[in-house]
């Protein structure tokens, strides 16, 4: 999936969070956004690792 999808998802969740009147719902969406950001960071790292390993010249 594209990197922009994860960013879009985090934005959607933040917008939804701001519309919530109940504290707990707002809190839940704040924490869900944190989880999405964690996913985004991890996806970036793992993609980088795949690239790094595929371009490892010692394996050519």
């Amino acid at each position: 999936m594209e990197e922009s999808t994860g960013i879009w998802l985090a934005e959607q969740i933040e917008a939804l969070s701001k519309k919530q009147k109940e504290y707990e719902n707002r809190a839940f969406l704040v924490a869900l956004k944190t989880a999405v950001e964690e996913q985004n960071d991890r996806l970036k790292l793992l993609k980088g690792e795949v690239d790094g390993r595929l371009w490892n010249h010692e394996q050519w």
Binding site: M1, L9, L16, K19, K21, N25, L43, K47, V50
Partner: peptide, 28 residues
């Protein structure tokens, strides 16, 4: 129980979150 949202909007958020989880597993 969320305010000002509809079923399909939430479903999209959930599906995208699940898709990201699966992408991570695939990369691993």
């Amino acid at each position: 129980n969320f305010d000002e949202t509809n079923y399909s909007e939430c479903e999209t958020i959930l599906d995208t979150f699940i898709q990201q989880k699966e992408d991570l597993e695939q990369l691993r």
